[in-house]
Design a protein around this nucleic acid. Structure first.
Lengths: 117, 117
DNA sequence: TTTATATATGATTATATGTTCATATATTTA
DNA sequence: TAAATATATGAACATATAATCATATATAAA
């Protein structure tokens, strides 16, 4: 086992080999981390909570979240890229809404963890 | 409504007021974002996947994740602080394991989202 | 009690990320 | 067509964060 980064005499070689085999591909791990990054910011979390209630235009989101329109737009772009929100245009107004059934469930699980402490 | 950050003529005042009332407290939003930050890093995600299989010592985690012992220790500290892992000492060896039923479920939901694209 | 080993941690550095500001784009209205 | 408005976006800046390196701590073994 010369490909071990960190040698230590207590290493459980068979355990390491076994668990290594069950590890997802690096690409998936990376994508998962990227996905959770979207939830890892207060502003985006507020946007998500607001959209959990109903579809909203950018202007209304800015007022609910109490942030500038620019900051909201930047964050909505990230949410869009991660396929967490979808949008529809009505004239010059753009309405955003959640685009995944998992989102509410994930946030709920997170909240359960927080509130158990 | 003079406390609006971003004024726009299309603002739906009643909608904004209504949704604002349902928003969780800023503290909770902040804690939630902090919680999800823990999942938002490849190294920590690998550690979580490894620990989903079984309890492991630091040395073994380092070898499974293919990173230095120091990097793993730093990340385990973060996981510990977030109450995602617990540990037990056996001599000079420290064994870590997952400390929350929600973790596997959250990761699973995230994976479902990723794999639906 | 000296030496070896497993883990933890502080400081540093490089990179990533969120906000702000200015401005661009798109659409409506006058 | 010109002016107004809703949203998007690029650049700059400040902050956060992960890895590395050196070293500290704790425990076991010699």
């Amino acid at each position: 086992m010369e490909d071990n980064i960190y040698e230590c005499t207590v290493m459980h070689e068979d355990t390491v080999e076994k668990v290594k085999k069950t590890m997802p591909k690096d690409d998936l791990i990376y994508d998962l981390a990227e996905f959770f990054k979207v939830f890892a910011d207060s502003t985006r979390m507020k946007i998500i909570y607001a959209l959990m209630k109903e579809e909203l235009c950018v202007c209304d989101i800015a007022n609910i979240v109490m942030t500038t329109q620019s900051a909201i737009s930047h964050q909505l772009r990230i949410l869009k890229q991660s396929k967490l929100v979808k949008y529809r245009k009505e004239g010059k107004v753009v309405y955003y809404s959640l685009d995944d059934e998992h989102i509410a469930q994930i946030v709920k699980k997170g909240r359960e963890h927080i509130e158990e402490l």
